[in-house]
Design a protein around this nucleic acid. Structure first.
Length: 527
RNA sequence: GGCGGCGUGGCUCAGUGGUAGAGCAGCGGUCUCAUAAUCCGCUUGUCGUGGGUUCGAUUCCCUCCGCCGCUACCA
């Protein structure tokens, strides 16, 4: 286990701000956020980076369409993105925009270093150029030999001198790295793809373009700007101040512990990026985690097909934690998942309303109703009954492993079956509502046990459903003996000794908690 | 075409060389503390197709069918 306070650096992919985020991008951020929150609980000092990828042709085109200069446009988009991430309770500690000067400075420093090391060379590129797009087109993009966006125009054979990165020179070193660091590419299924790719031979990649004003000028040839990936990937270090006057963060957090990315950009992160770092003589990230995609009822998310779903719509309808729960539980992080309102409703009602929310309600209600919320003398009760044969220490270990490996769905399933179902069953079996009539002390023992189950739930849900977890943990005076900010999974096994008697501190309305996940009606059947 | 993966009850999936499991949905029952929630029980499967290895395969091998990923610059 990593020592406490050891730095942990986690990143997500930077997004193109030529349109608003959709639930697929949200999936990535929530998955990364759960990991960030989990690592914080383990005592790590977490730096969690997100951001937008702004130095692209499409972005400047989009800005032009709206009659805006690129910078005000990307700044406004960044504001919108941050608004969404904030609504979803994503706990990033930094948000980089690649149009920021810190990124420009670091990029120029980096490319210069790689150039000086002799891994960049100039080469003539000949390709089909579309005047309408002001960009080169590849054979694959063409429709009947013409640009799909400008069918009326002929494409021209144009020659341009660009800078190339000698990626081909790194094949052996990359393969060697994969073999000696099998954990580098995750999940494992992606490793094979990348090994194949690299074994089949890498070509040098062009890393600059001529004649663009929006972008980062190449320091050793100011007529050229740095192109796409050689610019975008660098955000991971420029955000840490690489190449600036103050490299404190860089020294502290690089290399990254994990880059969380979409499966479609695996090769850039697992082949190009490490090669770039090797070329510059910098350390490589420890792991790259490629998550799956979210589909809309089986259809690929696409703006033009109308299958994109705005996270804010879902958020406004269902709330933050239900949103997070759906994606963390229903969509296995390393695989593809599906979104549908029907499934959302099912999962919400069964897992959140019926099991989780209701356990909270019935526990608090009984404590208030029977004991005015004061479980006097409960500090002397060892709440081991509710867990039965469940070993909470082992459960903590198991969950630690699952979450560390990004197996959130499995982790949540385990929490539900091992903790919540068990606690609900415990109520059914012990019948505190009957005990109160015959044996007040025995009833109190049961309720003290349930209070402990609430405490355990609050701790275990903290990385996934932060708001809900805090409500659970705040339901009783647990805070007095183990502060909310200092919790980690291992504490589920040890209700603090020498603690005060349990006392309900939950918010009440007319002596009852307000349902935290009011059931939602299933959407009407569509004919 | 090449490399890889998948195909298990209505849905989502787990799983093992000895003739299958979970959750959800559905059905029945139950308690009454609770958001008519909980808890208990039940129904459905030729484990894609055909063949092979084996005493025996859903699990190993091959064929076929279907689906999917990667095969260089879109999360």
């Amino acid at each position: 286990m990593a020592p406490a306070n050891e730095p942990f650096f986690i990143t997500t992919a930077i997004d193109y701000p030529n349109s608003r985020p959709h639930i697929g991008t949200a999936f990535e951020k929530i998955g990364a956020d759960a990991q960030a929150r989990f690592q914080r609980m383990k005592g790590r000092e977490v730096h969690f980076l997100m951001g937008n990828d702004e130095n692209t042709i499409k972005v400047s085109q989009r800005a032009a369409e709206l009659g805006l200069e690129p910078k005000p446009y990307v700044d406004d988009m960044a504001r919108q993105f941050k608004e969404v991430w904030s609504a979803l309770n994503v706990s990033n500690t930094d948000f980089i925009q690649t149009s920021q000067s810190r990124h420009h400075i670091g990029c120029r420093k980096f490319i210069q270093a790689v150039y000086d090391a002799g891994h960049i060379f100039k080469k003539k590129y000949t390709g089909l150029y579309c005047n309408g797009c002001e960009a080169f087109k590849t054979e694959k993009e063409l429709v009947e030999g013409r640009c799909p966006n400008h069918q009326s125009q002929e494409l021209k054979q144009v020659e341009e001198e660009n800078y190339f990165f000698r990626l081909s020179a790194f094949e052996d070193r990359l393969l060697d790295y994969y073999r000696t660091h099998p954990e580098f590419i995750q999940p494992e299924s992606r490793l094979n793809e990348i090994m194949n790719l690299v074994e089949s031979g890498l070509q040098d990649v062009s890393i600059s373009r001529k004649g663009f004003v929006w972008g980062i000028p190449v320091p050793f040839d100011e007529d050229q700007t740095i192109y796409v990936w050689f610019d975008a990937l660098l955000n991971y270090i420029t955000a840490l101040g690489y190449g600036s006057d103050d490299e404190t963060l860089y020294k502290k957090f690089w290399p990254a512990d994990v880059h969380v990315i979409g499966k479609d950009i695996t090769r850039f992160h697992c082949a190009l990026w490490p090669a770039m770092l090797m070329a510059a003589g910098l350390p490589l990230p420890k792991t790259v985690y490629a998550h799956g995609f979210v589909y809309n009822k089986g259809l690929k998310i696409s703006k033009s097909a109308g299958t994109a779903i705005d996270p804010m719509t879902v958020y406004e309808t269902f709330g933050t934690d239900p949103f997070r729960y759906y994606f963390l539980k229903e969509c296995v992080f390393g695989s593809d998942g599906n979104f549908s309102e029907e499934r959302f409703t099912e999962l919400y009602n069964s897992d959140l309303a019926n099991n989780l929310g209701n356990l909270y309600s019935r526990t608090i209600s009984m404590c208030v109703r029977y004991f005015e919320g004061n479980l006097e003398g409960s500090s002397a009760i060892d709440p081991v009954d509710w867990a039965g044969d469940l070993n909470l220490g082992e459960l903590a270990d198991e969950l630690d492993g699952l979450v560390s490996r990004f197996e959130y769905s499995q982790a949540l399933q385990t929490i539900w079956s091992q903790v919540l179902d068990r606690a609900n069953r415990y109520i059914q079996n012990t019948e505190p509502f009957k005990l109160i009539k015959t044996d007040r002390e025995a009833c109190k023992v049961v309720l003290a046990n349930l209070a402990d189950a609430i405490r355990v739930t609050g701790i275990l849900l903290k990385p996934f459903l932060p708001d809900t977890a805090e409500i659970f943990y705040g339901a009783f005076n647990f805070e007095a003996s183990a502060p909310w900010t200092s919790l980690d999974f291992t504490q589920i096994a040890k209700p603090s000794t020498g603690r005060a008697d349990y006392q309900v501190t939950a918010a009440l309305t007319d002596g009852k908690p307000v349902p935290m996940f009011p059931k939602i009606q299933p959407p009407p059947e569509k004919p």
